[in-house]
């Protein structure tokens, strides 16, 4: 109880520090700390799946994306710290207004009974033992299918910013790690372990906490480390194998969903073969999520830049 109160206090304090205008770099650092603390809060609530996703994607991946955005802003500002030209008062008032409206709407809602009982009743027909995976890939497959498409759309958005001359080049800026340096050594030590943890998280997701998003993020981190250590060059954005890896997840998911029409409806999974179907979808989704996330961090092709 005391731990929970301290945790809540720290989450609020760090959130306040993130938005209180200490500069964009500090704001991002506090955002990452906030993600780690929120992930601990999810752990305290026994929501291990959410905690894993929050730590991997909310704190880790989003933090890296924001940090690279800060670095880009500073480069645009000519090397110095980027200054925000936002009028704080209207922005603060608008944010407070939205927060107030959300709280009002939340308090106006009827007390939720939760869907735990329904999920538990339907779990034997889901094909997997982890109720979270059952909801994500079976009961509410729609949401997950659309999420995977949204991820792909985000990457298309990033790639759309590529300069015409750079199209078809390797994703991101040219990486230059010192040959034989510490980063290169790290890039040789960590990937085997990272691969094991990533694949384990996906496999374990059928019975316990884990799944395609958590495992895919770990695999994306492995790919990024390899690219940044200069051990494996980033792929060319036009490579057919890369495009195939990007669409594999949504395509397989959609294919299984359409096949479900023969069974009784879009995205319906027959209970007898639900488990192999879910594992197939998760395997393809993991590949696509890992590749998409890694490419989101690498950014648009900029072969001339960063040299």
């Amino acid at each position: 109880m005391l731990l929970d109160v301290i945790l809540c206090g720290m989450i609020l304090a760090v959130a306040l520090a993130a938005v209180s205008g200490l500069g964009v770099f500090r704001a991002v650092v506090f955002f990452v700390v906030h993600g780690v603390l929120v992930s601990m809060a999810w752990l305290r609530l026994d929501a291990v799946d959410v905690a894993l996703a929050e730590a991997a994607i909310g704190a880790g991946l989003t933090g890296v994306l924001l940090l690279s955005a800060v670095a880009r802003l500073e480069r645009l500002a000519g090397g110095g710290a980027w200054r925000q030209r936002v009028n704080v008062l209207p922005a603060g008032l608008a944010a407070a207004g939205v927060t107030g409206a959300l709280m009002w709407a939340f308090l106006g809602l009827p007390q939720p009974a939760g869907l735990g009982a329904e999920v538990a009743a339907a779990l034997p027909r889901a094909g997997v033992e982890n109720p979270v995976t059952a909801v994500l890939l079976n009961f509410r497959g729609w949401d997950t299918l659309l999420e995977s498409v949204v991820l792909l759309a985000a990457l298309v958005g990033v790639w759309a910013l590529t300069a015409d001359d750079d199209w078809g080049a390797r994703a991101g800026v040219a990486q230059h790690a010192a040959p034989g340096g510490v980063l290169e050594g790290f890039g040789r030590v960590l990937p085997p372990l990272g691969l094991m943890v990533g694949v384990y998280l996906v496999w374990a997701g059928a019975a316990g906490p884990g799944g395609a998003f958590q495992g895919g993020t770990v695999l994306a981190a492995v790919a990024l480390l390899l690219a940044m250590a200069g051990l494996a060059p980033a792929p060319r954005v036009g490579a057919p194998a890369l495009r195939l890896a990007l669409v594999a997840g949504p395509a397989v998911f959609l294919g299984v969903g359409v096949a479900g029409l023969a069974w009784g409806g879009f995205l319906r999974l027959p209970p007898d073969i639900a488990k192999p179907l879910i594992l197939t979808i998760e395997a393809a989704l993991t590949l696509s999520i890992a590749v998409t996330l890694a490419l989101l961090v690498l950014g648009r092709p900029e072969p001339g830049d960063g040299a």
Binding site: V182, L183, G185, F186, V189, L190, L193
Partner: peptide
């Protein structure tokens, strides 16, 4: 892992 990561 934390040792290696922190050192690097």
């Amino acid at each position: 892992l934390a040792l290696i990561a922190a050192g690097i």
